Computed example of a mutant assay.
Amino acid sequence: MLDSLEVVTTVVVGLMVGVEFAVAFVMGPVLNALPEDSAQLGHAHGGRMLGTVMPFWYIGSLVLVGIWAGAGWHHHGAGLVVTAGGLLLLSVVMSVLLLVPINNRNRTWTPENRPADWKQQLRRWERLHYVRVVILIGAFALLTIAL
């Protein structure tokens, strides 16, 4: 049972890391290369779509890691799993405090109502997102090593 939990958790977290990596290093550059209105509309749509799914994925991943840490407390790699959980918790806190407020504004913008500093706000979100991706990669690496 613990083996299955470990594999499922690692796959769920790994897929989340892959999505967030793709947002940072594939979708962001693609959207930023579009003409201004299209880029902004694409960012807003992505913010609405992923902003709906990702909270469940982040919390679900954190819960799975917590269950793994509890169930495997006396097994090899428990410290790595706990540390990975700490990194995931950090990514959730960082998301709620820093990234979600920007995303919540961005998801409602249109070319007609966007603020004058919309590009600066998106660049700030992107910089914070890069940090979050590094944190998530660290958590995923620790889970993989713990396997």
Score class of each variant (00 low, 15 high):
Leu98Phe: 14
Ala22Phe: 13
Pro115Cys: 12
Leu34Trp: 09
Pro55Lys: 09
Glu112Ile: 10
Ile102Arg: 10
Val134Tyr: 05
Ala24Ile: 08
Ala71Pro: 00
Ile102Cys: 01
Leu88Val: 05
Glu20Ala: 11
Leu80Asn: 01
His76Phe: 13
Arg124Cys: 04
Glu36Arg: 15
Arg127Trp: 14
Pro55Val: 07
His43Leu: 13
Pro111Val: 08
Gly70Lys: 08
Val23Gly: 00
Val134Cys: 09
Leu97Met: 14
Met49Arg: 15
Val96Gly: 08
Trp68Phe: 12
Pro115Trp: 04
Asn103Val: 11
Ala33Cys: 06
Leu88His: 04
His45Cys: 06
Pro55Met: 07
Gly46Arg: 03
Val17Asn: 01
Asn32Val: 12
Ala22Asn: 06
Arg127Gln: 14
Leu87Trp: 01
Leu80Ala: 07
Val30Tyr: 15
Gly70Ser: 05
Gly47Val: 06
Ala33Gln: 10
Met27Lys: 12
Arg48Val: 09
Thr52Val: 14
Arg132Glu: 07
Phe56Gly: 15
Pro35Leu: 09
Ala22Asp: 02
Glu20Gly: 00
His74Asp: 15
Phe25Leu: 12
Val23Leu: 13
Gly18Glu: 05
Gly46Thr: 09
Arg127Phe: 12
His129Ile: 08
Asn113Ile: 10
Ala24Trp: 04
Val100Tyr: 06
Lys119Arg: 15
Thr110Gln: 05
Leu89Gln: 07
His43Cys: 07
Pro115Glu: 08
Leu80Val: 02
Trp73Gln: 12
Val81Trp: 04
Arg107Ser: 14
Gly51Cys: 08
Arg124Pro: 00
Phe21Tyr: 13
Arg107Trp: 09
Val100Ala: 13
Arg127Tyr: 13
Val65Glu: 00
Leu136Trp: 01
Val81Ala: 02
Met27Ser: 15
Leu90Cys: 10
Gly85Lys: 04
Arg124Met: 11
Ala116Pro: 02
Glu112Ser: 11
Trp57Val: 15
Leu31Phe: 14
Leu99Asn: 12
Val92Arg: 07
Ala71Val: 12
Trp118Ser: 10
Gln121Tyr: 03
Leu50Ile: 14
Met16Leu: 15
Ala39Ser: 13
Tyr130Cys: 10
Gly77Asn: 02
Trp68Ser: 04
Val96Thr: 11
Val65Trp: 00
Pro55Ser: 07
Leu98Thr: 11
Thr52Ile: 13
Tyr130Arg: 13
Arg123Pro: 00
Ser95Ile: 11
Leu80Cys: 01
Leu87Tyr: 00
Gly72Arg: 00
Ala69Asp: 02
Ala69Tyr: 00
Leu80Glu: 06
Ala33Thr: 06
Ser38Ile: 12
